[in-house]
Amino acid sequence: MTVLPKVGNDIFNKEIWTEASRLVQAIAKIQVMHDETLYTWETLCARFNGVCIDNSFLELKDVLGSVNLTYPLMKSLENNKTYPLVAHIGGTVVQNGILIRGSALKLTFILDRATPRRTKAGEIWTEVAKMYANSIQFIHIKVYAITDQSIQRELSLNIDSVVDKVPITVILVLAFSVYNCLSTDWVRSKPFMGVLGLAVSILSGLSAYGLALYCGLKWQAINLVSIFLLIGIGVDDTFVMLSSWWRTEGNDVVTRMSLTYQDAAVSITITSITNIISFLIGALMPGFPCVEIFCWYTGLGLLFIYFWTLTIFGGFLTLAGRLELANRHCVLFIKVRMGPGKSQAKRHGQP
């Protein structure tokens, strides 16, 4: 919790420290029920040498103004206790180790999360404490309370606010993909391959999410962002495969598929390996769990895109090639009539 003065920007006022101390005492009395067990601050707090790690620095309110506060540590001569002011006072002005001014107080409530039950009870307790602190109107102070889950919760809300725009994004990408798979020839065009390329990208994302959750990786809302990366990379692989296919005209389907894979598979393999290794490095980076989880999910998605593109997309491309060889319309699948004695396959130089 962050405590700011309502008037001015100096927190070295006894009334401010007194109100902050009363707030801490009130929060310490909050009780919550979980699994038919009553929990309080005393039962949930993290302890050092058997004593709760609390906001005992507020005891200095009694000597505020009469004793110089040393920074970053203040040792009280009355009780021989040392207070880490560096952890509780922000916006400080220090001269010769003496704390002259500060603009904010930080109140911390560190909980013991040794067991899943205590962790869940602690989450309930912190939410109640947060709502209580934010609901009180003080005379001398303003209180802003957050918990260790606040960032994740706000991030989830931000992502949820744009989820309704995902269908629009998919439609636009789908239209772009289909448009780039068309040509002036209804036999050679491959609009359904554009649809399939997008479907493979989404399927890869869902497969990656399922495998990651099955393996025990934690879920976080930011992982949803990876689906846009996967769509972009998957559609790009689609264009690479189709570009290679169109450069193999004049051969039978088997030969065209062989040449397509010789040309496109190398490019797709190199780019996929590079991308996967990049995210693997991020996944192995210590100290940033959020980055690690995101990189694992995205890296798995890229791996699935690689395999699904070479298998699912390649298989359907073979079927599309047979339709093209048979001079069938790419959408209606009906025979396209050409000039007398001239078939579509012959026009492309095929025997």
Rank of each mutant, 00 (worst) to 15 (best):
D112M: 05
P340G: 07
S21D: 15
T40K: 08
I27D: 05
G210F: 10
R247Y: 04
A104Y: 00
P5E: 03
V173T: 06
Q220I: 08
E123S: 11
I270A: 08
N80E: 11
G90E: 10
S76Y: 00
G97A: 06
K342R: 15
F304C: 04
E154G: 13
R188Q: 14
T269M: 09
A46C: 02
T298Q: 12
W17V: 01
N9S: 10
I27E: 01
L174M: 09
T43A: 09
F313K: 10
S278Y: 07
P340W: 13
L280T: 15
M33H: 13
L172C: 12
I136V: 15
M74A: 06
L58F: 02
N55D: 01
I16Q: 02
V94R: 02
L325S: 15
N13R: 09
T92L: 03
L64I: 07
M131W: 09
W41M: 04
H348M: 09
L259S: 12
S66I: 11
L280W: 08
Y132F: 15
P351K: 12
P191L: 02
L77F: 10
I281T: 13
E15H: 14
K81M: 06
F333D: 11
A283K: 02
S243Q: 14
I202V: 11
I233G: 01
V51P: 02
L64C: 08
I146K: 13
R101V: 03
S189K: 03
D237L: 04
S150Q: 09
K29C: 04
S56I: 00
F228I: 07
P340L: 06
S135Q: 14
A87Q: 11
A145H: 10
I27L: 13
L302P: 09
V178C: 10
S267N: 13
Y71K: 01
T37D: 08
F294P: 07
A20H: 06
L157S: 15
A129Y: 00
L323E: 14
W296T: 04
L196N: 01
S161L: 05
P167H: 07
K218Q: 15
R337C: 10
G197I: 13
F294T: 12
T269E: 03
L198Y: 00
A283G: 12
V173S: 07
H348G: 11
S343T: 13
T119L: 14
N251I: 06
Y209R: 05
R328C: 15
T269S: 12
V195N: 00
G339S: 13
L203E: 03
L157T: 15
T147E: 05
I277T: 14
D263C: 06
G232Q: 04
V51A: 07
N251W: 14
K130D: 00
C215T: 14
V128W: 01
E42G: 11
F12H: 06
M338T: 11
T2F: 14
Q152N: 06
V235Y: 04
E15K: 12
Y83Q: 00
G210V: 10
W186L: 09
S21E: 10
G287N: 04
A221D: 10
V235M: 01
M1V: 13
L211T: 05
V93P: 00
D160R: 15
F333Q: 15
I141D: 03
T248V: 05
Q25T: 15
A175Y: 03
V86N: 05
L302D: 09
